[in-house]
C-alpha cells in the first residue's frame, strides 16, 4: 500500500473541506482499503468520516430514512426497516458476509467499485483503472459481466445488491458539498460507462452522501429480492431481481422491478413494470412481462446464459412477492 496522510474529522464542514481539497472519504473501508492494498486506488489523503453523526435509521411518516454511515447489518436488523421496507432488509442480508455488513456503510455500498477481475490486475488493460488502455474483459473472461448498458470501453456490472432495491423503490439521496446540498434519485447516481468508464458516479468533487430516503408506497410490503449466484451465500449476483407489488383482488395495480448482476448500473425495468399493470397474478402474465427485460441486451462471449436467466429470475421474484412461489 502506498503511503497516505490520515485525518479523522468531527464535523461535516471539515470533512467536505478536506474532500474538496482532494482527500478521499473513508467509511467502512471494505472497498477502499482492499483496492488501496492492490494499488488500484491511490489516494494521497484519507478523511475518516466515521465520527460524523450520520448513522441514524428512522421512520419519517411512511418513508424510511437511512444515514449514510449506518452499517448494512444495522439497517437490515432495524425494526423500522423490517416494518416499512422489508425489501431493503432482504437485499442487504443477501450481500457480503455478516462481518463485512458490520463494517460496510450504506454510502460506501453505493460507491463500491466493480468486481471485474481485470480491474484489480495492474498488468491487464482496463479502461476503468487506466483510461485509454483498453478493456481486457470484452475478449476475455466475461461470464460475470453485463448484458445491459455496456460500451466498447467497459462491460463491468455494478455489484451492489441494496442499490438494486433502492432503485426499484425510487429512493432518493441527500448529498452535501462545497456548494451546498442537493437531493436526487439514487438511480441518477450511477453513470453508464460510455467512453469514460473511469467516471462512475455523478457526485461533484467533495460531495458527501448524507442520507438515503426510501419513500413508502402501497407496494412496499409485498416485495422480495431474489439473488441467483454460484453458491448459496457470500457471493456476488449473477442475476438478481428486486420486485414490489401492489395487488388488488387477484391482479396487479402497480409493480416496481429492478435487476442486478446484468447491468453496468442497477437497472430499473420500467417496460416490465408497465406490462404488469392490471394483469392477473400468475406465471403467464409474469413471464410475458419479464420477457421485455431482454430489450437492448447485448450478451458477450461467455454470458449468454444471462439472457435466459434474467427473465426467469424476474418471474421467480414476482412469484415470491405475489405469494405464488
Amino acid at each position: 500500500m502506498l503511503p497516505f496522510s490520515f485525518e479523522k474529522v468531527r464535523t461535516e464542514q471539515d470533512a467536505i473541506r478536506a474532500a474538496a481539497a482532494g482527500a478521499r472519504y473513508i467509511a467502512g473501508g471494505t472497498t477502499l482499503i482492499d483496492l488501496m492494498r492492490d494499488e488500484v486506488e491511490r489516494p494521497e489523503r484519507l478523511v475518516d468520516i466515521n465520527a460524523l453523526p450520520m448513522t441514524d435509521i428512522r421512520a419519517d411518516g411512511a418513508d424510511l430514512v437511512i444515514g449514510a454511515l449506518a452499517r448494512m447489518s444495522d439497517v437490515a436488523a432495524h425494526p423500522e426497516t423490517k416494518r416499512l421496507q422489508p425489501l431493503i432488509a432482504e437485499s442487504l442480508i443477501e450481500g457480503a458476509s455478516p462481518q463485512l455488513r458490520n463494517m460496510a456503510s450504506m454510502g460506501g455500498n453505493l460507491l463500491q467499485r466493480v468486481r471485474c477481475p481485470y480491474f484489480r490486475m495492474l498488468d491487464a488493460a482496463c479502461n476503468k483503472r487506466d483510461p485509454g488502455s483498453g478493456c481486457s474483459a470484452i475478449d476475455g473472461l466475461n461470464a460475470g459481466h453485463a448484458i445491459l448498458g455496456t460500451s466498447d470501453h467497459c462491460v463491468a456490472t455494478h455489484p451492489s445488491d441494496v442499490a438494486v432495491a433502492l432503485v426499484a423503490l425510487g429512493a432518493a439521496m441527500r448529498v452535501r458539498g462545497p456548494n451546498g446540498e442537493r437531493t436526487f434519485p439514487v438511480e441518477e447516481l450511477f453513470r453508464l460507462p460510455g467512453d469514460t468508464p473511469h467516471l462512475e458516479h455523478t457526485l461533484r468533487p467533495g460531495e458527501l452522501i448524507v442520507e438515503i430516503r426510501v419513500p413508502g408506497g402501497p407496494y412496499a410490503r409485498q416485495a422480495r429480492y431474489l439473488k441467483v449466484r454460484d453458491r448459496a451465500s457470500y457471493e456476488f449476483a449473477l442475476v438478481s431481481a428486486a420486485v414490489a407489488l401492489e395487488l388488488e383482488g387477484g391482479s396487479i395495480r402497480q409493480a416496481r422491478v429492478a435487476v442486478g448482476g446484468v447491468g453496468t448500473r442497477p437497472w430499473r425495468m420500467r417496460a416490465v413494470e408497465e406490462a404488469l399493470r392490471g394483469k392477473p397474478v400468475g406465471r403467464d402474465a409474469f413471464a410475458e412481462a419479464a420477457h421485455l427485460a431482454l430489450e437492448g441486451t447485448r450478451p458477450l462471449s461467455h454470458n449468454h446464459y444471462k439472457v435466459e436467466l434474467l427473465p426467469r429470475t424476474i418471474v421467480r421474484a414476482l412469484e415470491m412477492a405475489g405469494g405464488t412461489a
Binding site: F6, G28, G29, I33, D48, S97, Q99, L100, N102, M103
Partner: peptide, 20 residues
C-alpha cells in the same frame, strides 16, 4: 475475524488508526 467493540469484523479490511 475478531470482535471490535463486540462486533465481528474482518480485521484485514480495516485500518488500526481508525480504531483508537
Amino acid at each position: 475475524t475478531v470482535l471490535i467493540n463486540g462486533r465481528r469484523v474482518t480485521s484485514c479490511l480495516t485500518l488500526a488508526v481508525m480504531h483508537d
